[in-house]
Write a protein that binds this DNA or RNA. Sequence first.
DNA 1: TTAACACCTTCGGCCCACTCGAAGGCAACC
DNA 2: GGTTGCCTTCGAGTGGGCCGAAGGTGTTAA
Lengths: 145, 145
Amino acid sequence: MSYTIQEVAKKMAISTYSIRYYHDHGMLPFVKRDENNNRIFEDVDLEWLHIIVCLRQTGMPVERIQHYLDLVQQGEQTVPERYDMMKAQQTRTLNEINDLQVHLKTINYKVDHYADILINHKADSFVPSNLEEAQQHDVYQENQP
Amino acid sequence: MSYTIQEVAKKMAISTYSIRYYHDHGMLPFVKRDENNNRIFEDVDLEWLHIIVCLRQTGMPVERIQHYLDLVQQGEQTVPERYDMMKAQQTRTLNEINDLQVHLKTINYKVDHYADILINHKADSFVPSNLEEAQQHDVYQENQP
DNA sequence: TTAACACCTTCGGCCCACTCGAAGGCAACC
DNA sequence: GGTTGCCTTCGAGTGGGCCGAAGGTGTTAA
């Protein structure tokens, strides 16, 4: 199977700009061109791209990804370094998920709090007496999870 | 309690550059200055900063955060819009966590795979016969979760 | 046949959210 | 009185794309 850049972009849910960027920066070494100089992607390229997207979206800088892909091409003697890189990425990703879950709690709290206000104040049409009161409400009560 | 910018940076695990950036862009409206023009942060500022960090790290653009903080200062009549914003952020964050968990599986697979190679090949000191073989190994076997 | 349309290319500038360096002010200690 | 150590402002630089302009090619369709 071979694909156009557009098809790949759709499949991978990233922009054609990004794909060209990765290709231009040497991260898709097997991509071929057709007779009109258009990029043509084979399944092997999709696999490489999948790894690139995975590593990028878990926060690895492009330069590190380039280095990792170089290691892959250098062969088996680079496995120890690759192992270390993936271990580090694993840790990093676990931390990021954890951070997001902590932040999510704060957001959940806000959603619940606003929902509460909306329900109660629809019932008795309460309007705050002045701005300062509303401010303090937000600052001193709302922001304490 | 009042704090220097350095103390706040440590407490919040962000850089002093970022804090100044948020302040300069109107997102910390209550921060005072001392007699030497140094920023001094009170607990209320930490609460605002906490929200800013939470929203930023869950991917809200600065402009949206500015808007949200404006809404907070405008008082209770903006609660419906704030509710919508937090709902959207909740959804976005859940999606992001999910994406990261999917990527984590790919990374876990790689870690396990490399660990496997390291254990087996330490045992019998296998070295691949050529680069191409190692390449194919990585591309065709490794990248299939 | 020529026009429209849809895709692709390269090149180069723009964007966000920081990040950092330079240049300088002020306070406190040795 | 010099050095350390913090702070300030201003302005430039960075990463990782994003996007528009200008132009090529190929297919359909009047």
